[in-house]
Design a protein around this nucleic acid. Structure first.
Length: 403
DNA sequence: TGCGTACATTCCACAGTG
DNA sequence: CACTGTGGAATGTACGCA
C-alpha cells in the first residue's frame, strides 16, 4: 500500500462508528480496500470531454470491490462521500490526481508514459503519484525467530538459534537472525544510523495473510550523543499493534513492513529519494519446528550480516546505503546500554479518539487485547531478554558497526 | 457553547438511452 | 426530449473536546 494511504489513515483524528452496529465506518481495512478499488478502477471510454473529469460508475465499482475484498457493504454514496473527504487531504489529492492523470492518459495516449496497467502494485498510480521517477524502495528482510510456546524459553539461555534464510532472492537484501524467544520478550525498538539528522518518518503496515490489518506512522527519534556512530534514528515497531502481536498465540502469519523516508519529503508530498523498506518476518523457532541441534552458537562478531544497499539520497545528504544486522543486547552491542525500550512519545500523536478502529474490527477469532502504546513492553529483563535490531543507514562501506 | 471532524444526505449537472 | 443513473459539490448532522 502506498505512503499516501498510510498518511491518510494516520492523519485521521477520530473514527466514527455506525449507530446500529457500533463498528467503525471506515477502518483501515476498508480504507485500504477503497484505495485499492481506486487503483483498480479503469474508466470506461467516453467521447465526452466532460467525462475526463468524471469517473462513470467508479463509486459503484469501488463499493463492489470493497464488498468482494472485505465482505463489508458500503454504498456508492458512502464511497463518494469518503472520496470527497479524501480530496480534502494532500495524500488523497495525490491519489485522485493520479487517477485523473491515468484517465486522461487513456483518453489521450500520447504522453509516452510507460504504464504497466494493472500489472502490479508497484505500477499502481498511487505508488508513482509522488515520485518522479518512481522510486522503488529497496527492501530488506529481517527474520525474527520467536518461540510460540513460553514454557520452553528461559530468559537466561545463552543459546542462539541461527536461522539464515537462503531462499529469498539475492536482490532482496538481507537475511537475519536472532536468538529465539517469545515475542513479548523482544524489545521492538529498531534503530538506524545515518549521516544526517533530518527528521525521518517511519510508516508501518502490518500484513496478515497478505492483507493489511494495521497501519501506523511514527516520527523517528534521534538518540542523543550517539557519535561516533553517526546519527542514530530509532523508533518502536508498530507501537499501537505490538501488544496485540504479543498476545497472539501464533504471530507468524503477520509481517511488518516498515518504510522510512524523510519527513520533509513526506510533508511536501514530493518523494525524491528512494525510501528504505524493511520487512520483518516472524519465524517460529519453537523446538517442535527447529531442532535445537541445528542451532548455532555465535559470538557477537559472527553476527554481522552481509551488507545490503538501499539508496536514500536526500538532497545531497549522506543517506546512501544500508547495511543491517541483528544482535543480542546481552552480548554487549553498541547501543544496548542506551537502548532499553522507551516508548516513542510520537506514538501518542497518532492515537485516535476514540481509540484506533483496530480495537473494533479485529476478526472475532483473534482475541483483541489493546494496550495504549506507552504501556506496550512486557519485557522481563532488559539485559538478556530482548533483541535490538540495528540497521545502519550510513554511507557505503562505512557502517559504524564495522559491517 | 462554539469549533473541528467524520460521515450522511441533498441537490444539481451531466451522460446515456429509448 | 424525457427519463434514469451517476458523480460531485454543498449542506446537514452527530459527536467529542476545550
Amino acid at each position: 500500500m502506498s505512503n499516501a494511504f498510510q498518511t491518510i489513515v494516520t492523519e485521521r483524528k477520530c473514527w466514527r462508528v455506525t449507530k446500529d452496529k457500533n463498528e467503525v465506518v471506515w477502518p483501515p481495512r476498508l480504507e485500504a480496500a477503497l484505495i485499492e478499488g481506486l487503483e483498480k478502477y479503469t474508466p470506461a471510454e467516453s467521447k465526452s470531454s466532460r467525462a475526463l473529469s468524471r469517473f462513470p460508475n467508479r463509486n459503484k465499482f469501488i463499493a463492489r470491490y470493497i464488498y468482494e475484498t472485505t465482505g463489508q457493504t458500503r454504498t456508492p454514496k458512502q464511497v463518494g462521500s469518503r472520496i470527497q473527504q479524501l480530496r480534502d487531504t494532500n495524500a488523497g489529492k495525490h491519489i485522485l490526481k493520479s487517477l485523473s492523470d491515468r484517465h486522461l492518459e487513456m483518453m489521450h495516449p500520447t504522453r509516452g508514459h510507460d504504464r504497466n496497467e494493472g500489472s502490479s502494485r508497484g505500477a499502481s498510480p498511487i505508488s508513482v503519484a509522488n515520485s518522479e521517477p518512481p522510486s522503488t524502495p529497496k527492501t530488506s528482510h529481517v527474520y525474527i525467530n520467536i518461540l510460540t510456546d513460553d514454557t520452553v524459553w528461559f530468559p537466561t539461555t545463552p543459546h542462539s538459534v541461527h536461522s539464515l534464510r537462503p531462499e529469498f532472492p539475492s536482490s532482496a537484501a538481507i537475511s537475519s537472525f536472532s536468538e529465539a524467544r517469545p515475542l513479548r520478550a523482544i524489545d521492538p525498538t529498531v534503530a538506524f544510523t545515518s549521516g544526517s539528522s533530518s527528521p525521518l518518518i517511519s510508516s508501518f503496515r502490518v500484513l496478515c495473510n497478505e492483507r493489511v490489518v494495521h497501519v501506523e506512522q511514527t516520527h523517528m527519534q534521534i538518540l542523543p550523543n550517539a557519535a561516533p556512530v553517526g546519527v542514530v534514528h530509532y523508533t518502536h515497531l508498530v507501537p499501537q499493534f505490538w501488544s496485540y502481536l504479543c498476545s497472539c498465540t501464533d504471530p507468524t502469519p503477520y509481517t511488518i513492513v516498515q518504510e522510512i523516508m524523510c519527513q520533509t519529503e513526506l510533508s511536501s508530498s514530493r518523494i525524491s529519494s528512494r525510501p528504505l523498506m524493511v520487512v520483518y518476518h516472524f519465524v517460529n523457532a519453537s523446538p517442535s519446528t527447529v531442532p535445537i541441534a541445528s542451532s548455532s552458537h555465535l559470538s557477537p562478531d559472527d553476527r554481522a550480516l552481509s551488507d545490503i544497499s538501499a539508496d536514500f539520497d536526500s538532497d545531497g545528504d549522506d543517506f546512501a546505503a544500508l547495511s543491517a544486522f541483528a544482535h543480542s543486547t546481552g552480548s554487549g552491542s553498541p547501543g544496548s546500554s542506551n537502548f532499553s525500550f522507551s516508548p516513542s512519545p510520537s506514538a501518542a500523536d497518532f492515537s485516535s479518539v476514540p481509540p484506533s478502529p483496530l480495537d473494533w474490527t479485529e476478526p472475532a477469532d483473534i482475541p483483541w487485547q489493546y494496550f495504549p502504546a506507552p504501556a506496550a513492553p512486557k519485557i522481563p529483563s532488559v539485559d538478556t531478554s530482548y533483541i535490538d535490531i540495528f540497521t545502519s543507514l550510513g554511507s557505503v562501506g562505512t557502517s559504524p558497526y564495522g559491517l
